[in-house]
Nucleic acid binder design. Structure first.
Lengths: 122, 122
DNA sequence: CTCACCTCTGACGTCAACGTCAGGTCCCAG
DNA sequence: CTGGGACCTGACGTTGACGTCAGAGGTGAG
């Protein structure tokens, strides 16, 4: 498929796909005229990339982890990065849960202006 | 306390505190010479601000929520924002858990180069 | 063949939360 | 009273993941 179709299917922009290629996260066959052509599995790959980006990983970190996904092979360095990122995400989950609970406290303790209070839920 | 002490106690930079003030998230008394002086509870306030920033809230969103924390009073708009951000964080936790699990899969399926495989855990 | 739409390669723009530097003022221990 | 640190206000720099625009060429249904 061409870049526009991949962008639609994966839910990202065409620009983003070119950026991923620039960051060596994604490659494409080129037609004689230079147009990119992707295989079907590229959709899942892009979604994985997006997933990792949204978890706060940088391009270079993702680039160093994708070989583990592609070849199911790891070096000591890539294993260290994998473990470290996993822990980072775990810690992030923990603080997010705390933040959510804090917001819940605020929601619970908050009342409308000039409201009598103690309205347990609505 | 002065700005340097607050920065140390709250674990942020002096520049960040001035930025928070610029964003109307924080205020300070001023001495005759113009130096900022903060009360003790400012430490917790800054930590709350940091917590919200790290959960992905923007300055303006935080600014619109802090009155709920300060006055325990909410308008329909602020209640809507509170609820929306809570849901956003909740969704973010969900996808982070999925990402973490995905990384765990990669870690589990990954082997050292030229390793025999099937080592269930170590 | 044609025309609307897609794609190409640069290359500059954006945005938020600060970092950093300059030039000047303030505070206080010695 | 003095020196070195802390503080002040601008104001420009940074970073990453794209957005956007320009100018040129490719693609395919009718």
């Amino acid at each position: 498929m061409r870049i526009g179709e991949l962008a639609t299917k994966a839910g990202v922009s065409v620009r983003a796909l070119r950026y991923y290629e620039e960051q060596r996260l994604l490659w494409a066959e080129r037609s004689a005229s230079g147009q990119r052509h992707y295989p079907d599995p590229a959709v899942e790959r892009v979604q994985l990339i997006q997933m990792l980006y949204s978890a706060g990983l940088s391009s270079s970190t993702i680039a160093s982890l994708l070989p583990c996904v592609d070849a199911k092979e790891s070096t000591p360095e890539s294993r260290a990065i994998l473990a470290a990122e996993r822990e980072r995400i775990d810690a992030q989950i923990t603080t997010l849960i705390r933040t959510r609970d804090r917001l819940d406290d605020v929601i619970a303790s908050t009342t409308s202006p000039s409201n009598g209070c103690v309205v347990t839920h609505a």
